[in-house]
Amino acid sequence: MLLIDCPHCGPRAEPEFQYGGEAHIARPGDPSALSDEAWATHLFFRSNSRGLHAERWRHSHGCGRYFNAVRDTVTDRFACTYPTGTPRPDIADKPGETR
């Protein structure tokens, strides 16, 4: 069970959270202007990173808010969490290094 540092509530246990997929994928302003291919890329293609990965979480059994996190997909370690709408912090990508 992971300990996740909600930017609004502090560190809380994983069962209070819901995973929300990769972060920083903004919905296009006018989806109808997109080609089928561009829309499919938006819908289905994700980076699937090995190492540091920016992703969304929702503190569903706490404040209810979505936020972003950078997590190492090799070690499961969270490098940082930060509020929705703020840019991804500059953290060096070294897979497994933070173990």
């Binding site: 819901q18 929300g20 903004a26 919905r27 969304r56 929702r58 569903s60 209810g64 808010r65 979505y66 929705t84 709408g85």
Partner: peptide, 17 residues
């Protein structure tokens, strides 16, 4: 019920703030 609320909150908080 729960997933609809989460779905709504998702768009409200992240796409249509």
């Amino acid at each position: 019920a729960a997933r609809v609320l989460a779905h709504m909150e998702d768009y409200l908080q992240t796409e249509f703030p």
